[in-house]
Computed example of a mutant assay.
Amino acid sequence: MLTAAKLVGAILFAGVGYVAGYLVTDTFPEGQLATYFPASIAVIGLWQGWYVMGGRAGAGFSAALGNGFRTSVQIAFFGLAFYALREMFRRSANLRYDQPGEAVTAALELFLEYFWQMQTAPVLIALAAGGLIAGVLTEMAARTWR
């Protein structure tokens, strides 16, 4: 069901995801394309903002801070998982793996590699501060438009 909190949460966390995705592109190795990276992380932020933050809005400002931070962590997790699996399937299409177990292990290794790659101050600050601010603003929207 459409509520103001879900709509505001979706829009705000799409913005948080876009900014974090844009900042992560600075950590990419030379020559790696990042054409749709910020936009795809923004879509994950839209999804998480609608279902996670928007669905939990209205429980108070302290809960909003926690839910906003949780939503940002989930944006990072699903973004990492999506791109690790994408890279694994791309490599698999090039017949790089001999067995399915190798592909699964490679996906987990890629997830960890991308996790350590995104551990820069601007990305973490954008996710943490953006999540906290967006959480409070979503809570305010839930209280304003019931």
Rank of each mutant, 00 (worst) to 15 (best):
129 A>M: 15
98 D>H: 10
95 L>W: 07
92 S>L: 05
106 A>M: 03
35 T>H: 07
128 A>P: 02
5 A>W: 02
34 A>H: 14
72 S>Q: 07
126 A>Y: 01
59 A>L: 13
75 I>C: 05
133 I>C: 03
104 V>D: 01
95 L>S: 11
76 A>C: 04
98 D>W: 11
77 F>E: 05
37 F>G: 04
101 G>D: 12
56 R>C: 00
5 A>T: 05
119 Q>G: 05
22 Y>C: 01
106 A>Y: 03
55 G>T: 07
28 F>N: 03
24 V>G: 00
71 T>M: 10
136 V>C: 03
60 G>C: 06
5 A>C: 03
76 A>K: 05
115 F>C: 01
47 W>C: 12
27 T>L: 09
129 A>C: 13
129 A>K: 04
84 A>T: 02
123 V>M: 13
46 L>E: 04
71 T>N: 11
43 V>T: 13
102 E>I: 01
106 A>C: 01
92 S>A: 14
39 A>Y: 14
85 L>V: 14
131 G>M: 09
46 L>K: 04
113 E>R: 12
122 P>A: 07
115 F>I: 00
14 A>Q: 07
136 V>M: 08
60 G>S: 06
132 L>R: 06
87 E>R: 10
10 A>L: 03
53 M>N: 08
62 S>K: 14
64 A>V: 10
101 G>H: 01
86 R>T: 10
18 Y>N: 03
38 P>V: 06
99 Q>V: 10
83 Y>A: 00
52 V>G: 01
23 L>H: 10
101 G>L: 12
95 L>R: 07
100 P>K: 00
91 R>C: 00
119 Q>F: 11
85 L>M: 13
69 F>R: 06
70 R>F: 15
15 G>R: 08
134 A>K: 05
48 Q>Y: 10
29 P>W: 00
136 V>G: 01
62 S>W: 12
82 F>W: 14
36 Y>H: 10
133 I>A: 14
50 W>G: 02
